[in-house]
Amino acid sequence: MNIFRFAGDMFHLISILVLLLKIYATKSCSGISLKTQELYALVFVTRYLDLFTDFISVYNTVMKLVFIGSTAAIVWCMQWHPVVKRSYDRELDTFRHYFLVGACFVLALFLHENFTFQEIFWAFSIYLEAVAILPQLVLLQRSGNVDNLTGQYVFFLGAYRAFYILNWIYRYFMEQRFSRWISCISGLVQTALYADFFYYYFLSWKNNAKLHLPA
């Protein structure tokens, strides 16, 4: 565990807490893509299959449970909570995310570390996480202005994977055996997808203006 990875995990945790705060405090999920949340729930479930078989550390196990639990709670809230579900932008959140699931699964069948059930689902979850933000970014562009908490949610989510890239660079130089190419390349693609969001987020912060993404 190095500082970059720990910071990345904390940014990831903060992003989920910001989202939970927004939904709980405003009792609204406008501007949030349910499809992205569903993809993240699938990412965590398929990545943490080893939750009960391999024990790495208390931190590792607790964080896995928190990620699975919080994302499941967000998906539940957006679909079933009587008040929150009314504010879901159903007609804007129309990204066909099943294609992402299918494409990532086919890719995982070809590109994986070992051809085992667990490894294929692990590679699948890595590829899916890279593209899981797409429905959310598309929704933000369609809904035009972005409210602060949603903007911070996407910002912290991007920062988390960016710090993981620093973590992989650090591990590449510090450990003789580096076999995280799947995570590394997928993580680069994932962070690149946030690049334009970061650009507009920075502009809005610099001009102290409302975050507005060009349609």
Partner: peptide, 10 residues
């Protein structure tokens, strides 16, 4: 034996 890469990252 092929060292099974433990995924110690989240």
């Amino acid at each position: 034996s092929s060292v099974v890469t433990k995924h110690d990252e989240l």
